[in-house]
Amino acid sequence: MQIFVKTLTGKTITLEVEPSDTIENVKAKIQDKEGIPPDQQRLIFNGKQLEDGRTLSDYNIQKDSTLHLVLR
């Protein structure tokens, strides 16, 4: 499925993911596309910070959902 990740600069990254993917996996995909190390990434969905060990389906993230990427 496709999800979107919006950065603070207003750029939107499109990712191909599975609901069973962990947040860690998603961060690795963002690193592949953008070169941002996962330990600098914080992903936010519906105002909640997403934890590495959880999956997209844990957070009820579905296709065409938009996550927000904050760098630390």
Rank of each mutant, 00 (worst) to 15 (best):
M1P: 05
M1A: 12
M1H: 10
M1R: 08
Q2L: 09
Q2A: 05
Q2V: 13
I3W: 00
I3K: 00
I3M: 04
I3R: 00
I3H: 00
F4P: 03
F4E: 09
F4L: 04
F4D: 14
F4N: 07
F4G: 10
F4R: 02
F4Y: 03
V5I: 06
V5H: 00
V5Y: 12
V5W: 01
K6N: 11
K6P: 05
T7F: 08
T7E: 10
T7Y: 12
T7N: 02
T7M: 10
T7Q: 15
L8N: 12
L8S: 14
L8G: 03
L8E: 08
L8M: 03
L8A: 02
L8V: 09
T9P: 11
T9V: 15
T9F: 05
T9R: 02
T9L: 01
T9G: 04
T9I: 03
T9Q: 04
G10V: 13
G10P: 13
G10F: 01
G10K: 02
K11V: 10
T12E: 14
T12P: 14
T12D: 13
T12I: 09
T12R: 02
I13E: 04
I13G: 03
I13D: 08
I13F: 03
I13Y: 03
I13W: 10
I13M: 11
T14Q: 08
T14D: 11
T14K: 04
L15M: 13
L15N: 00
L15I: 10
L15T: 03
L15R: 00
L15H: 01
E16P: 06
E16Y: 05
E16I: 10
V17D: 01
V17N: 03
E18G: 07
E18S: 06
E18P: 05
E18M: 08
P19I: 09
P19K: 08
P19M: 02
P19E: 04
P19H: 03
P19D: 08
S20F: 08
S20I: 10
S20Y: 09
S20R: 09
S20Q: 12
S20N: 10
S20L: 07
S20P: 07
D21V: 06
D21N: 05
D21G: 10
D21T: 06
D21E: 11
D21F: 14
T22A: 07
T22L: 04
T22V: 09
T22E: 04
I23S: 08
I23F: 02
E24H: 02
E24L: 02
N25Y: 09
N25A: 05
N25P: 04
V26M: 09
V26R: 00
V26Y: 00
K27T: 07
K27Y: 14
K27W: 10
A28L: 05
A28R: 15
A28W: 07
A28T: 10
A28G: 11
K29S: 11
K29P: 00
K29R: 09
K29M: 05
K29N: 12
K29D: 04
I30R: 00
I30V: 10
I30T: 14
I30S: 04
I30E: 00
I30N: 01
I30G: 01
I30A: 10
I30H: 00
Q31E: 01
Q31G: 06
Q31H: 10
Q31P: 03
Q31V: 07
Q31I: 02
D32N: 08
D32I: 05
D32Y: 14
K33G: 07
K33I: 11
K33P: 07
K33F: 12
K33D: 15
K33T: 07
K33W: 09
K33A: 14
K33V: 07
E34T: 10
E34H: 07
E34I: 04
E34D: 01
E34S: 12
G35H: 02
G35V: 13
G35S: 09
G35Y: 05
G35K: 09
I36G: 12
I36A: 11
I36F: 07
I36P: 07
P37Q: 10
P37F: 05
P38Q: 11
P38F: 11
D39P: 07
D39K: 12
D39N: 03
Q40S: 11
Q40F: 02
Q40M: 12
Q41T: 10
Q41S: 12
Q41N: 15
Q41Y: 07
Q41P: 08
Q41H: 13
R42I: 15
R42A: 13
R42S: 10
R42T: 09
R42V: 09
R42H: 11
R42K: 04
R42W: 07
R42N: 12
L43R: 00
L43E: 00
L43W: 04
L43D: 00
I44F: 05
I44A: 10
F45E: 01
F45Y: 04
F45W: 05
N46S: 10
N46A: 12
N46E: 13
G47P: 01
G47H: 07
G47E: 14
G47I: 10
K48T: 09
K48Y: 14
K48R: 08
K48N: 14
Q49N: 07
Q49V: 04
Q49F: 03
Q49H: 13
Q49E: 11
Q49L: 03
L50H: 00
L50G: 01
L50F: 08
L50M: 09
L50S: 01
E51N: 03
E51K: 02
E51H: 15
D52P: 04
D52L: 03
D52W: 03
D52F: 09
D52V: 10
G53Y: 14
G53W: 03
G53D: 13
G53M: 14
R54T: 12
R54M: 13
T55H: 08
T55S: 13
T55N: 05
T55W: 07
T55D: 11
L56T: 11
L56N: 01
L56I: 02
L56P: 03
L56M: 05
S57N: 07
S57T: 11
S57E: 12
D58Q: 09
Y59F: 05
Y59E: 15
Y59A: 06
Y59P: 00
Y59T: 04
Y59L: 05
N60Q: 11
N60I: 05
I61G: 01
I61Q: 00
I61Y: 01
I61R: 00
I61K: 00
I61W: 01
Q62W: 08
Q62F: 13
Q62S: 10
Q62G: 07
Q62T: 11
Q62P: 10
Q62A: 11
K63E: 10
K63D: 05
K63R: 10
K63P: 13
D64F: 11
D64P: 02
D64R: 01
D64A: 12
D64H: 07
D64T: 07
D64S: 04
D64M: 04
S65V: 05
S65G: 09
S65A: 09
S65E: 11
S65K: 02
S65Y: 07
S65W: 15
T66M: 13
T66E: 14
T66K: 05
L67A: 08
L67R: 01
L67Q: 01
H68E: 15
H68F: 03
H68Q: 01
H68R: 08
H68Y: 05
L69M: 15
L69K: 00
L69N: 02
V70P: 10
V70R: 03
V70Y: 14
V70M: 11
L71T: 11
L71G: 10
L71W: 03
L71V: 06
L71A: 14
L71P: 04
R72H: 12
R72K: 13
R72G: 15
R72V: 04
